[in-house]
């Protein structure tokens, strides 16, 4: 009895799939490089490589760092869209490099990669996040309560929990704050991310410092600086309706009792 050999069934597609380079395409990454120890000038460097279009921009950056140019500097930790380290401006828009597939951003043309805007660039794609985190700390992003601690958990109805559900999803990647034209012009503005994290506690039925947070955001660099450009909402990799949250804080300030 003769059995068909495996070889005879081999199609070109299977061959290609086995070698793994069937659908590799040539991708050019145009990266904004800056190294203050070498030069105070910014240079754009093109890196050409073979990539699977289903890979992510982060994979391309890894390929550059591991195989082409080890001096490229960028942040990334989990590489799966939850740590918020690798927010950068890809083709002119803020995105997470680890959540952006090459096929989704027209890999036929060079893909531009820049650091996020409005924060000081330290090297290549790494920016100084301190002003961003300072604004976050300023809105007291933690539960504040009075009286004795309960002996069991603080109960909350499903409806009360749903009230601020959207703003619990923030990963502090700064994609929103660094997409905001107001923040680019004046770094004193709290920025969308800080307001989102204030919103998360202001509308939490268990929290008792909502008044205080509203007062902080009533400042001249608070919510009133928002010009509803919706860049933050478009940029958020977690799909938070950032502008909506900011507007809710504004309305809470207008309608609260004194």
């Amino acid at each position: 009895m003769s059995t068909t050999t495996v070889e005879s069934k081999h199609s070109a597609a299977l061959d290609a799939a086995e070698t793994g380079d069937a659908h590799l395409i040539t991708v050019t990454l145009r990266v904004r490089r800056f190294n203050p120890e070498v030069s105070d000038q910014v240079v754009w460097v093109d890196y050409e490589m073979q990539m699977d279009p289903k890979e992510r921009v982060l994979d391309a950056l890894h390929k550059i760092k591991w195989e082409l140019d080890g001096t490229l500097t960028f942040r990334r930790s989990c590489a799966h869209g939850i740590c918020g380290s690798d927010a950068m401006r890809i083709n002119g828009r803020n995105r997470l490099a680890c959540k952006t597939l090459l096929k989704d951003i027209n890999p036929e043309k060079p893909i531009t990669v820049e650091p996020i805007k409005g924060l000081t660039v330290l090297k290549d794609l790494v920016v100084d996040m301190e002003p961003f985190f300072q604004a976050f700390r300023d809105v007291m992003p933690f539960l504040v309560t009075k009286g004795n601690e309960p002996t069991r958990e603080r109960l909350q109805s499903a409806e009360d929990r749903a009230r601020f559900d959207d703003t619990t999803k923030c990963i502090l990647c700064a994609a929103c704050t660094s997409s905001c034209p107001v923040f680019w012009n004046d770094g004193q503005y709290f920025g969308p991310a800080a307001i989102v994290n204030a919103h998360r506690f202001i509308f939490d039925s268990r929290d008792e410092a909502g008044e205080q947070r509203l007062e902080i955001l009533n400042d001249r660099d608070g919510v009133w600086r928002c010009r509803t450009t919706f860049n933050c909402t478009d940029a958020c990799p977690r799909g938070i309706e950032v502008t909506k949250a900011i507007q809710e804080v504004k309305r809470a300030l207008l309608t609260r009792r004194f």
Partner: peptide, 17 residues
């Protein structure tokens, strides 16, 4: 190539501009 590209905002940003 300029120091940075223009931010590619969508309808919201351009209506504000």
């Amino acid at each position: 190539m300029p120091a940075g590209t223009l931010y590619r905002g969508r309808e919201g940003m351009w209506s504000w501009v």
